[in-house]
Amino acid sequence: MPLFRKFTAIVFLALLAGSAAQADNDVQGELTIVHPWSRATAPSQKAGGVFLKIQNAGDQPDRLIAIESEMADVASLHTTIRDGDVMKMRPVKEGIIVPAKGEAELAPGGQHIMLIGLRERLVKQTTFPLTLIFERAGRVEIVASVEAAGARAPSGAVGDHGQHGAAAGPAK
């Protein structure tokens, strides 16, 4: 059924294009930033977390050393440490290393970007820009999507096409 095949191909391409745009992957040289996302906040809530994955296709490791954002007074790298059943959050002063031909993940329960002193509320289904500063790659502008307040992962990240799109990103 040629018509059906054509239709499938169009749907597939549309999905690919849609998810690539939604994933907001930024590629700078050898780095790909996959699915930057955050969680909705209440108006009185003055802190928010940003999570993402950094893939490094290059032969040299890189290091995420700082974050800039207009959304908050301070944007810094934090990690959650589990000490028995006590949760502690601490700044990551030495930055986050992205190994050569490897990746670093900032995810709930671990390393994350913390926005402190939010200037505006993070509203579900909106996006906001921020800048990642790497030791080698320099400044990488990204756009994070805002998910539900209790989300564990960005919407559509499970079995999602965006990740494949992202993996193909550096070839562009």
Partner: peptide, 13 residues
């Protein structure tokens, strides 16, 4: 509420 990681994750769960 000033907890961007563990608390939203747990409350979401």
């Amino acid at each position: 509420t000033f907890c961007p990681d563990i608390c939203p994750t747990e409350l979401g769960d």
